[in-house]
Amino acid sequence: MHSMFNGDFGIVLVNIFLLAILFATGVAIARMRSLFAIVMLSGIYSLVSAAWYVAVDAVDVAFTEAAVGAGMSTVVLLGAMLLTSRTAKPEKLFFRLGPLLVCLATGAALIYATVDLPALGDASSPANAGVGLTYLQVAWFETGIPNVVTPVLGSYRGFDTLGETCVVFTAGLAVALLLGFGERSLAERIRNEGRSGDHSTRKASAASDEDPS
């Protein structure tokens, strides 16, 4: 926290700039009613936070945030949005009070917790002094892989990564079991194309068949 202001002036400016964009995006998301704009803004939020992770040297986290937050969850939210209405209904003022209090309490707790956090890049912090230091020292000799993140994830913590892969698989399975595999609409579409399709299916098939030029 403090080292953010000890370091280079340019880095401080970049940090303030990116965090200000994050703040403005968050406020805009909270105040908006159009779900399409909210989905797009949450994608922008992920992209800017990915840029900020790069600024604090967490490149792998930034990469994941950009791929999952900005890419994947934006399109999944877009798909979810298409299943509902396009605008959120405005809440009555009284019902906004509860969420506001929850947000304020959580924010205060988080700010209170950051006081105890070690400074950014502190060499004696638990994350850097404990097992992280050991990984940095032995990973190259034991695995011969330059990027230390990869052997930590794949080699030292291979069971964790196996568990994560199973979690992702289970998530896909659960969504598919709840919502169906999504093939029904395709089957319907093909059946409609088999008949003398109505205007909308003909247009869609023209769009999908206007292939390589």
């Binding site: 994947m72 399109v75 999944v76 877009l78 798909g79 979810a80 298409l82 299943l83 990564t161 892969t165 992702v168 698989f169 998530a171 896909g172 399975l173 969504v175 598919a176 709840l178 919502l179 169906g180 595999f181 999504g182 093939e183 029904r184 609409s185 395709l186 579409r189 869609a204």
Partner: peptide
């Protein structure tokens, strides 16, 4: 991991998007 993640993500997307044909 590549196969598992891309397969699961596409399954999730198809489950959502298969209900509405297109935007």
């Amino acid at each position: 991991v590549l196969c598992g993640v891309s397969g699961a993500m596409l399954t999730i997307f198809y489950a959502f998007a298969g209900r509405v044909a297109e935007i």
